[in-house]
Amino acid sequence: MNDWITEFVESMGYAGIALLMFLENVFPPIPSEVIMPLAGFSASEGRLSLAGVLLSGTAGTLAGAIFWYALARSLGETRLRRWAERHGRWLTMDDDDIGKLDTWFCRHGRWAVPAAHVVPGLRTLISIPAGIFAMPGGRFMILSILGAGLWNGMLGLAGYGLGEHFGEVDRYLGPASTAIMAALIGYYAWRVIRFKSNR
């Protein structure tokens, strides 16, 4: 996959970076830990500007976040509660759980949205409660830009500074990202197995 990402960025430039970062949010196995350091390396070689790399990467991330936010917003809390009544085990939530999540998100969403953007898997998932519990769209976009800008900035600057050794970023962060994704999947499976509705 790394070779394909390299060829895509080299041929498409800023548009390719934005598209890959959009897909990374829609389809998490595409790794930002490869995309942004590679783009930063391209900037260090003079093929792209560093500012353009960071802006296009963050724009793509924001587009992916908005995709899930809009989808969840169209679903809405009322429909989610109906789904939980019928398919609570697979959602691993019942009506009480949704109420608790709503309360938690209303209290902590302002830091949870930007913080989740630096954690693989969560950067996709955090947009869903933001949409379902109707966080104002403007606030969601600002918080997403803050989180995405921080994460993409760190990765892009690392690639810029490491130059041709930009692959070291994925070498160290890749296993951690894989472990986090595996833990999230394992946690979901555990909740499905242990699920017991309060109704």
Score class of each variant (00 low, 15 high):
G46R: 11
G46K: 04
S49W: 04
S49E: 14
L50V: 13
L50Y: 08
A51D: 08
A51R: 10
G52D: 13
G52I: 11
V53R: 09
V53N: 07
L54H: 01
L55Q: 03
S56R: 01
S56G: 09
G57H: 09
G57F: 12
T58W: 11
A59N: 07
G60T: 12
G60V: 13
A63I: 10
A63S: 15
G64N: 12
A65E: 11
A65N: 15
I66D: 05
F67K: 05
W68T: 06
W68E: 11
W68L: 12
A70I: 10
A70D: 11
L71A: 14
A72T: 06
R73I: 00
S74R: 14
G76T: 13
T78A: 15
R81C: 05
R81T: 09
R81I: 14
R82K: 15
R82H: 14
A84H: 04
R86V: 07
R86K: 14
G88S: 09
R89Q: 14
D95P: 00
D95S: 06
D97Y: 12
D97R: 02
D97A: 12
I98L: 15
I98S: 02
G99H: 07
K100F: 03
K100G: 00
L101S: 12
L101M: 14
L101I: 11
D102I: 00
T103H: 08
F105M: 02
F105W: 07
F105Q: 04
C106A: 08
R107P: 02
R107E: 15
R107F: 03
H108S: 06
H108W: 10
G109T: 06
G109Y: 09
R110H: 12
R110Q: 08
W111Y: 12
W111P: 08
W111F: 12
A112N: 01
A112S: 04
V113N: 01
P114M: 00
A116V: 04
A116I: 00
H117Y: 14
H117D: 00
V118H: 00
I126D: 02
S127N: 09
S127T: 05
I128Y: 01
P129I: 05
P129F: 03
P129H: 03
A130M: 05
A130R: 08
G131H: 06
G131C: 08
G131I: 06
I132E: 07
I132V: 15
I132A: 06
F133G: 03
A134H: 13
P136I: 09
G137K: 13
R139K: 12
F140D: 08
M141C: 15
I142N: 03
L143A: 12
S144A: 13
S144F: 00
I145D: 05
I145K: 02
L146R: 00
A148D: 04
L150Y: 13
L150N: 00
G153Q: 06
